[in-house]
Simulated assay, not measured.
Amino acid sequence: MNDRNIVVEKSLQPYVEDQKVEIVERKGIGHPDSLSDGISEAVSRALSQEYLNRFGNILHHNTDKVLIVGGVAEPEFGGGEIKKPIYIVIGGRGTDKVDDQEIPINRIAEDTTRKYLDEKVRQLDVEKHIDIDSRIGSGSTDLQSVFESQGIPSSNDTSLGVGYAPLSETEKLALKTEKTLNSREFKEKYPQIGEDIKVMVQREDGNINLTVAVATICTFLDDLDHYLSLKEDLIEEIYSISSEVTEKQIEPHVNTADNPEKGVIYQTVTGTSAEQGDDGMTGRGNRTNGLITFDRPMSMEAAAGKNPINHVGKLYNLLSTEIAKEVQEIDGVREVFVRTASQIGKPIDQPKMLNIRILPERENDVKKYEAAAKSIAEDHLDNIPQLSEKIIEGKLEVF
């Protein structure tokens, strides 16, 4: 076993569900920031697979710099059109040459972006509604160095990853609300709603307020009465979703910026606000657990698009979360926070520090959990290559 710097201590932060106020946000898959994250990650996975197919190893790349510039749209009941397409810039770095082999990294990025958007935003015409400008910076290497790089890679940054467990009811509710509204089954029932859904959940003691923004699709709306009826249906659906998560008092609100008397309602042509001036950028949305949690420690790293082999800004956030989940399962442990800090150039399985903060269910001495917690952390660090494999295979969500 490696002599790693793993520090276990008692958490002095009160349990989140014991706090009077808790606020959680979730940006849905069609939100411009989430679309930027999704494109970044999809391009990274596509490049990773291309490198694996050609060379049996993943070469240097980072595609965590995607910018979406909103277009111009004119939605109207029963129709509407896109007047100016959504503009997407893909930045980052990639290896485009190995010896005499050229890798078309920008073509791969553009093709992957179209495929991703076609799958995620069902009313978006990827040939007409978007313009893509891939400007991934290039680099070259030699085949010998590719094979010499096998083994435990070194951290390519000095950074910090954060994770915690378990999720609170408020956090579970934010996740479940968006995922249900954006599920295939829900879209079959309500084709009028798009993929751009944002959920903000505010808990005060035992009362929960949900403010949900839902982009509707004008093609499937007959008139204003149809839209207003849809909103009422969605409020009832949110009540139903909430009852599966919590017994607390729920107060849902949908599209609160509407002003029907002035003709202001949230309808779109494509189902995403990116069509009408709402911009997006990688890293401005959900953290690796799918949430923006204002009452929890968070890392500001944009995990999506970072390479899955040695970029600790991605790996350590996911690693910390996986460790926290397992430590929290120890009998007597109520809540866990994990922070993992890297030092550039050092092996990724040897973090500069891995800090586990445990909040016990009772006033127990945290020392009794130390050995088990350290063992769990050691095991996850020993198996970092398997974490990378899960990322490449799309088995772990990163936003």
Score class of each variant (00 low, 15 high):
M1L: 07
N2Q: 13
D3K: 14
V7M: 06
L12R: 12
V16F: 03
E17P: 00
D18P: 01
D18E: 13
K20L: 12
E22S: 10
K27C: 04
K27D: 03
S34I: 00
D37V: 00
I39C: 05
F55H: 12
N57P: 00
I58E: 05
I58L: 10
N62L: 04
V66C: 08
V72R: 15
E76Q: 12
G78I: 02
G80K: 08
I82T: 03
P85D: 05
I88H: 06
V89M: 15
D96P: 05
Q101D: 15
P104K: 08
N106T: 05
N106M: 11
I108K: 10
A109Y: 04
A109G: 10
D111F: 05
T112S: 13
K115E: 14
K115N: 11
Y116G: 09
D118Q: 13
H129D: 15
I132Y: 06
S134V: 03
I136N: 12
S138K: 13
G139E: 14
T141Q: 11
D142I: 03
L143K: 13
Q144K: 15
S145I: 01
V146E: 10
Q150V: 09
I152A: 13
S159N: 13
L160N: 11
G161C: 03
V162C: 08
V162A: 06
Y164Q: 15
E169V: 02
E171M: 07
T177V: 09
E178A: 12
E185F: 06
F186N: 09
K187E: 09
K189I: 11
E195I: 00
D196M: 07
V201N: 07
D205I: 08
I208H: 11
L210W: 02
L210G: 12
T211W: 06
V212G: 11
A213H: 03
C218D: 13
L221R: 03
L221T: 02
H226W: 07
H226S: 08
Y227Q: 09
K231P: 01
E232Y: 05
E236N: 14
I238C: 10
I241H: 08
S243N: 12
E244A: 13
T246C: 07
T246N: 13
H253M: 13
A257V: 07
A257S: 15
A257I: 05
E261K: 14
E261V: 05
K262E: 15
G263W: 03
V264W: 15
Y266I: 06
V269A: 14
V269F: 03
T270W: 01
G290L: 01
T293D: 06
T293W: 00
T293Y: 00
R296E: 07
M300D: 09
I309T: 03
K314Y: 06
L318E: 11
A324D: 09
K325H: 05
E326H: 04
V327K: 08
I330F: 02
I330D: 09
E335Q: 11
A341F: 00
S342V: 01
K346Y: 04
Q350D: 12
K352G: 06
N355W: 04
R357Q: 15
R357L: 11
P360S: 11
E361F: 02
E363Q: 15
D365E: 15
Y369V: 05
E370I: 02
K374R: 14
I376N: 12
D379Q: 14
L387Q: 06
I391C: 12
L396S: 07
